[in-house]
């Protein structure tokens, strides 16, 4: 094809946040979307005929999960090595996200993809393979770093990205963070789900519920410390709908991730040059879906007060902050770098 000048210059930039539970996209044409990171293929031809699609992504996949081989490809923040479906699932998520951005025919697609920090360490190649099929040029960065870039906090701060599979910590020094500047722990959103599930099972042994329902309770009601409202949900007992108060269980499950986060923040701050520790303590920024737990920033700040004068805030839009930062990186990146990749 002989491209004219206009086509050559036509580039659509993407920022993608590829998360364990949710994946988001921001693009230079104004798209701002997020989806559940679930992909499913019909189990057999009957399922395919009933569903009418060969692959389902996001909420749609969750809704039809009984008829599907369902994948959540970035479990615990990494693509499961050796499981072909996981890499295929990442490809499908990327394809779906790009479709949401509606690129014009012939447009070049330049993407920056933010992934959990561990995934960047462990399977950066698998991610490149999965994503590069759909874009012309690609860069992969860690999620907390892309959040920092998006909010212009390039130095003297710590980003705490509370996701589903992992909590990623990243200290920014005005340069691209090294592996020592980043740390990942696994007491994240999925851990809260597990805690809540077992607490509810203990309290209501005769009630019927599954992990997906528990996840929805968490997303709807999560909080730490105190709130005034009651939290009551309907669960079937012996086939009969019954109202249950789950407020205490929700609080206990959500607060279970506070101690490891506090411990990791203090440990990482202590590693920094003492001259800069004060500035970083005043600049702890939470991102990711986990930062939507009501009261978590205040709770962390109080817990950290034992270790110094900490200030903990939350980014404005935690679900899209990573993708927005990745888009900003993509747009700021000089074109010669894109060409070289």
């Amino acid at each position: 094809m002989i491209f004219n000048e206009e086509q050559r210059e036509s580039v659509l930039f993407f920022g993608v946040d590829l998360g364990t539970s949710r994946s988001a996209i921001c693009s230079s044409n104004g798209t701002r979307e997020w989806i559940e990171s679930f992909v499913g293929w019909p189990k057999d031809f009957i399922a395919e005929k009933v569903i009418g699609k060969s692959v389902l992504v996001g909420t749609e996949a969750l809704q039809h999960r009984l008829s599907l081989d369902l994948y959540r490809p970035l479990d615990r923040g990494v693509i499961k090595e050796g499981i072909e479906g996981s890499e295929r699932a990442v490809k499908e998520i990327i394809r779906h996200l790009i479709e949401l951005a509606r690129p014009e025919p012939g447009q070049r697609l330049h993407a920056v993809v933010g992934v959990p920090a561990d995934s960047l360490k462990i399977n950066k190649l698998a991610i490149r393979r999965a994503v590069s099929e759909h874009v012309h040029s690609l860069m992969v960065v860690s999620e907390p770093f892309s959040i920092a870039y998006g909010i212009d906090l390039l130095s003297n701060c710590m980003i705490v990205d509370i996701g589903a599979g992992t909590v990623d910590f990243c200290v920014m020094h005005g340069t691209i963070p090294s592996e020592e500047d980043q740390k990942t722990i696994f007491t994240a959103g999925d851990y809260v789900d597990e805690q809540l599930y077992s607490l509810l099972l203990q309290k209501y042994p005769n009630s019927k519920f599954n992990r997906n329902m528990v996840r929805q309770f968490k997303e709807q009601f999560s909080f730490v410390r105190t709130i005034d409202e009651q939290i009551c949900v309907e669960l079937p007992v012996n086939g009969k709908p019954s109202i249950h108060d789950i407020k205490d269980e929700i609080r206990r499950a959500c607060e279970s991730i506070i101690p490891p986060i506090v411990e990791t923040i203090t440990e990482m701050v202590s590693r920094v040059d003492p001259e800069f520790q004060t500035r970083i303590r005043k600049n702890i920024v939470l991102g990711g879906g986990g930062s939507l737990i009501r009261g978590i920033a205040q709770c962390l700040q109080e817990e950290l007060s034992e270790y110094g004068d900490y200030q903990v805030t939350r980014v404005a839009d935690p679900l899209l902050a990573g993708a927005f930062g990745a888009l900003k990186l993509a747009q700021d990146m000089p074109s010669r770098y894109w060409e070289a990749l």
Binding site: V112, G174, T175, L329
Partner: peptide
């Protein structure tokens, strides 16, 4: 800082 970071991202991806 920004310029250094962008270069760092590029080199790492390269």
């Amino acid at each position: 800082d920004r310029s250094r970071i962008l270069r760092g991202v590029y080199e790492e991806n390269l």
